[in-house]
Amino acid sequence: MNSITLTIDGKLISAPGDQTILEAARENDIHIPTLCNLEGISAVGACRVCLVEVSGSNRLAPSCLTKVAEGMQVQTATDRLREYRKMIVELLFAERNHICSVCVANGNCELQDLAVTVGMDHVRYEYQYPSCSVDVTHKEFGVDHNRCILCTRCVRVCDEVEGAHTWDVSGRGMQSRVITDLNQPWGTATSCTSCGKCVQACPTGALFRQGSTVAEMKKDRELLDFLMTAREKKQWIG
């Protein structure tokens, strides 16, 4: 792929033409926040926190999906973008019941990290307090819908990497829930191979290893990175 040049936040960058803005930014140590994106699985552009401004267009572009182009000028952290990101994170906190202090992922949660990055100090929106269940019927793992942000990383990793397609999303809009098989207890979902990739892919504490401590949750995430690098780049670096 021929290389092209663009600027991101004023920095002149050259990148392979098939890269996304997000990939090009990351390689050049420019941090763009993401939630639904996960290297190694398809991008869906759902969380909208990676939106950037591209000059010449009045539409914001999801950097996880938008390819770089010659002469492109990208802004990743204008005041407007920062405010939007903060609002989106607050909307997520208000949508389910996120109580970080009692969460297994506390300190190791991408949502929490993002809340800190965007400087969220309180939530301006009314809490929705949906009634959400916790399912611990699986012998190793559990799902706590109170903490799910519907990023569908579990769905994609299970379908695209493991090939089991145990997960999917049911309902729509605010009624959406991730489900296993026919919306049955995870422990009874016969398609599940108990590989644990979904747990590793989950950005929050929604999917967890039972009885795991915070430190173990972190290790899990690294395991997935290893797997993805191996698949994508054929490099086995642990």
């Binding site: 869906v44 759902a46 909208r48 989106i88 909307l91 208000a94 942000i149 809009g173 605010m174 959406s176």
Partner: peptide, 21 residues
């Protein structure tokens, strides 16, 4: 719009609920 939102992206899924409220 809240009822018909597909639920995929956060601003529409969660934002329409807040606007409705």
């Amino acid at each position: 719009c809240m009822d018909e939102s597909c639920g995929k992206c956060v601003p529409c899924r969660a934002g329409t609920v807040q606007m409705y409220r």
